[in-house]
């Protein structure tokens, strides 16, 4: 589904990713861990097409197509979703209105009929229940005045609505209490399917108790320095990153 080959990325002329190779198949969950500043968010943002990040080398194929050639919105409509590490507050833009527009943009792209207000609301009600999204969050402005936990849940809620084929979660667990963490994990697990893949960026092995990954990769200094199975996360939790970086 996703083939990343020797991806090199800079921001403000600073080299951040120095050759990432990663292959993600349908149905898989890949966890990406690594110290602060190692380039995890940069990878997520580069995959979603953030304009501040320049790809200076390498290739990314998404379902056989050149992902890097697509605008960010086209990537989203094609089924790539990134849950932001820091979701943006957008004053005045109503959350439900925005979500309906986003969902219909995608449906239109897929050649599906757009949902009317009624159909949209019933879909929203289903998904909101799962993530315990309060109805009032929908009538507020996008992320505005949301608590940290509400913002993260809202990201997963959007993912549930948009049903991406590839979801990249950038530290969606950071700052969540255990109840919110379980909600988020349940939301993700409910969406796991043989047709869908996840890249989960996290600092904490705890999340991976709930969202059990197929692979764990360690990113350091802009490169993947180690890959393994879910045991690797446990090992990292105990030993930190030093032993890998030293190796």
């Amino acid at each position: 589904m996703l083939e990343i080959k020797n991806l090199q990325v800079t921001a403000e002329d600073k080299e951040i990713l120095r050759g990432i190779d990663l292959s993600v198949n349908k149905g898989e969950v890949h966890a990406i861990m690594g110290p602060n500043g190692s380039g995890k968010s940069t990878l997520a943002r580069a995959l979603s097409g953030h304009p501040e990040y320049q790809v200076t080398g390498g290739q990314v194929l998404f379902e056989g197509r050149d992902l890097l050639d697509m605008d960010p919105d086209e990537r989203a409509r094609e089924g790539v979703f990134m849950a932001f590490q820091y979701p943006v507050e957008i004053a005045g833009v109503n959350n439900a209105y925005f979500l309906k527009a986003a969902l219909n943009a995608k449906r239109k792209h897929q050649g599906l009929p757009e949902l009317d207000a009624m159909e949209f609301m019933s879909l929203v009600n289903d998904k909101a229940k799962l993530l315990e999204i309060d109805k009032s969050m929908l009538s507020r402005a996008v992320n505005e005045g949301f608590s940290g936990g509400e913002k993260k849940r809202n990201e997963i809620f959007q993912m549930a609505l948009l049903e991406p084929t590839l979801a990249i979660l950038d530290e969606t667990d950071s700052g969540l209490d255990i109840d919110a963490l379980k909600l988020v994990a349940n939301g993700v697990n409910a969406m796991r399917s043989p047709e869908r893949a996840f890249i989960v960026v996290t600092h904490y092995q705890r999340l991976l108790n709930y969202i059990v990954p197929d692979f764990v990769h360690v990113l350091s200094g802009g490169r993947i320095v180690k890959s393994g199975g879910k045991e690797l996360a446990l090992e990292l939790e105990q030993k930190g990153y030093g032993w890998i970086e030293a190796a």
């Binding site: 960010p72 986003a102 995608k106």
Partner: peptide, 21 residues
């Protein structure tokens, strides 16, 4: 960028922001 990352075109994202304003 946030709006575009959810599938809205640049023009739609901008219109939505101006509308809100």
């Amino acid at each position: 960028f946030y709006l575009r990352a959810r599938g809205l075109t640049y023009a739609d994202a901008r219109d939505m922001m101006i509308h809100a304003f």
